[in-house]
């Protein structure tokens, strides 16, 4: 017995394991409950963020040269397609402006200053992505100094990307919607079929088919393919009306009671260079 306790290697191993478990628990508690990480972590992240900028800049530069070459090759075909779209865009823009103006006036008449669709935009670029397989996280270049708050939704130029899980002074971490994390917050989403609004939650992600799974649906209405799915603004942190994706297929849930809807994400979650933090203003 005496000898057991004086075995130095064993003691060190055990202490290391216990410290490791304590730290893991501690960090999960911090992540779930506090709006910012502890001060030591923040200082570290600040410093590493600076070094990361130095390293990621040349990598980004090399990549952009590569993509420029392939862009050049595609330009002719793309130009042809885009020309057709430009004509319709102009008229749509004018229509949008009038509608926006009208919306504003109507809100004023109702004395409704803030609604679920109001949000401020903070644009940031993506510094790097977590190499760990189990964390679908990216690090972005804006933090609490620019007004980023925890749990804000993050969108790319095409659609919803994820939510902010950790805010430092000048960088923050974003958990992508493709996360497998059991305890992460879910996005409340909705879709509209013939005027009826169907609510649900993003509950899972199928990595083999690259499809999001929308569950917790109570309605039995038949849902058509390619219906647009948007965030519903319920749950408090996400603004309403951010595009999540389009319906790819539907299936019965495992217990047969509810429907599962498979959604093709609108945003390309593997090609992120610039993202926008959508911070709700109400």
């Amino acid at each position: 017995m005496q000898k057991f306790f004086f075995n130095k290697k064993l003691v060190i191993t055990l202490v290391a394991l216990i410290v490791s478990f304590l730290l893991i628990t501690f960090s999960i508690v911090v992540r779930n409950n506090r709006s910012t990480p502890t001060i030591i972590q923040q200082i570290g992240n600040e410093a590493f963020g600076l070094v990361d900028r130095l390293v990621s800049y040349p990598v980004a530069a090399v990549t952009s040269v590569g993509s420029n070459v392939s862009d050049l090759l595609n330009t002719y075909n793309e130009n042809k397609k885009l020309k057709q779209q430009v004509d319709s865009l102009a008229s749509q823009k004018v229509e949008n402006q009038t509608l926006e103006k009208e919306n504003k006036q109507l809100k004023q008449q109702l004395k409704l200053n803030k609604s679920l669709t109001n949000y401020t935009k903070i644009t940031a670029y993506v510094l790097s992505r977590s190499p760990s397989t189990w964390e679908n996280q990216i690090v972005i270049s804006k933090g609490s100094l620019s007004g980023v708050t925890k749990n804000s939704a993050v969108v790319s130029n095409k659609g919803l990307v994820g939510r902010v899980v950790e805010v430092n002074k000048s960088n923050s971490k974003v958990e992508l919607i493709t996360t497998q994390n059991d305890s992460s917050d879910r996005f409340a989403v909705q879709l509209e079929v013939n005027g009826e609004v169907i609510n649900g939650l993003i509950t899972d992600y199928n990595s083999k088919k690259n499809l999001l799974v929308m569950g917790q649906i109570t309605s039995k209405t038949k849902i058509k393919k390619n219906t647009k799915v948007i965030t519903s603004g319920m749950g408090g942190n996400t603004p309403k009306g951010l595009l999540v994706g389009t319906v790819a297929s539907t299936a019965d849930d495992d217990d047969g009671l509810a429907t599962k809807v498979y959604i093709k994400p609108a945003a390309d979650l593997t090609d992120l260079s610039v993202v926008t933090v959508a911070k709700r203003t109400d």
Binding site: I24, S27, R31, Q41, G49, S130, S132, V139
Partner: peptide
């Protein structure tokens, strides 16, 4: 650094 900067879960 790996834990702190990339995952946020120390240990």
């Amino acid at each position: 650094i790996f834990d702190m900067y990339y995952t946020g879960i120390l240990g």
